[in-house]
């Protein structure tokens, strides 16, 4: 690979106060255009890992590298550039309740001077068109369903024209009937070549959309591979147990 990976973590360790070791020497490389799905039982460090990538968690040791530049360090100023380049979608959507849909999408790009207000609104309408929510542009956030809010949250992140996207369990807080619409949006994004790291429990999505599946347990990457290989013939006992458990509950 001549091009450096878009996102890379090297020997990443994260220890929370109280000595809980959430990440133990995690090495992860995500190439441009790659879709990586991180699976693992709860508490395995999946969310912590992607939160370290854009500095929402301070890392204890190791390195976070974006396009060959080391970006980890202290303080928001240091992280700002990375955050401008890599978008994030949260489990709870976290839309700003005091702004309408349009305000949510245009706030950050206008502040970052990526574009003027008119251009930002045009871009917002384009993105809302893709997720089928143009009629909600002026709606207050609280009037939207969970699935609609999450799609707006994805638009909000995309309005920054990011090079990559982090998804932190984007469908876990949704009612079952709304999961599909959000996954469809993510699938479309993947097809358009967006680099994505997704923490999710949606096995179907992992199987069909991921280029690579990373299985984590107790703060370590236990196994990684193509979805076909991982789901049909997991190499490690821990992965096998995890998959057994998931399948048994009919997921």
């Amino acid at each position: 690979m001549s091009q450096p990976p878009l996102i890379e973590t090297a020997a990443l360790c994260k220890e929370f106060r109280g000595g809980i070791r959430a990440l133990r020497k995690v090495d992860l490389k995500v190439a441009k255009g790659e879709v990586v799905v991180i699976l693992g039982p709860s508490g395995s460090g999946k969310s912590t890992l992607i939160r370290c990538v854009n500095g929402l968690e301070t890392i204890t040791s190791g390195a976070v590298v974006v396009e060959g530049r080391r970006v980890d360090g202290h303080g928001p100023r240091r992280w700002r550039q990375t955050r401008l380049e890599i978008g994030m979608v949260f489990q709870n959507y976290a839309l700003f309740p005091h702004l309408d849909v349009m305000g949510n999408i245009t706030l950050a790009p206008c502040r970052a001077k990526l574009m003027g207000r008119a251009e930002a609104e045009e871009e917002a309408m384009r993105l809302l068109g893709i997720v089928g929510l143009t009629d909600k542009a002026r709606a207050p956030v609280a009037s939207l369903s969970g699935g609609q809010q999450q799609r707006v949250a994805i638009c909000r992140a995309l309005a920054m024209k990011p090079k990559g996207m982090l998804f932190d369990e984007p469908t876990s807080a949704l009612d079952p009937e709304m999961v599909g619409e959000v996954l469809a949006t993510m699938r479309r994004l993947a097809e358009e070549g967006m680099t994505m790291i997704c923490v999710t429990h949606e096995m179907g999505f992992a199987r069909e959309v991921a280029d690579r599946v990373v299985f984590m347990d107790r703060g370590e990457i236990v196994e990684e591979g193509t979805p076909a290989q991982f789901f049909s013939a997991p190499r490690t006992e821990r992965a096998r147990q995890f998959l057994d458990l998931i399948m048994r509950h009919g997921a």
């Binding site: 854009n54 929402l56 976290a94």
Partner: peptide, 20 residues
């Protein structure tokens, strides 16, 4: 998550405080 999502969008801490 309100603060985090604003920061994740590349907003400065002061902008996050005043606007969000």
């Amino acid at each position: 998550h309100q603060r985090e999502s604003a920061l994740a969008l590349g907003m400065r801490p002061a902008e996050t405080m005043v606007l969000v």
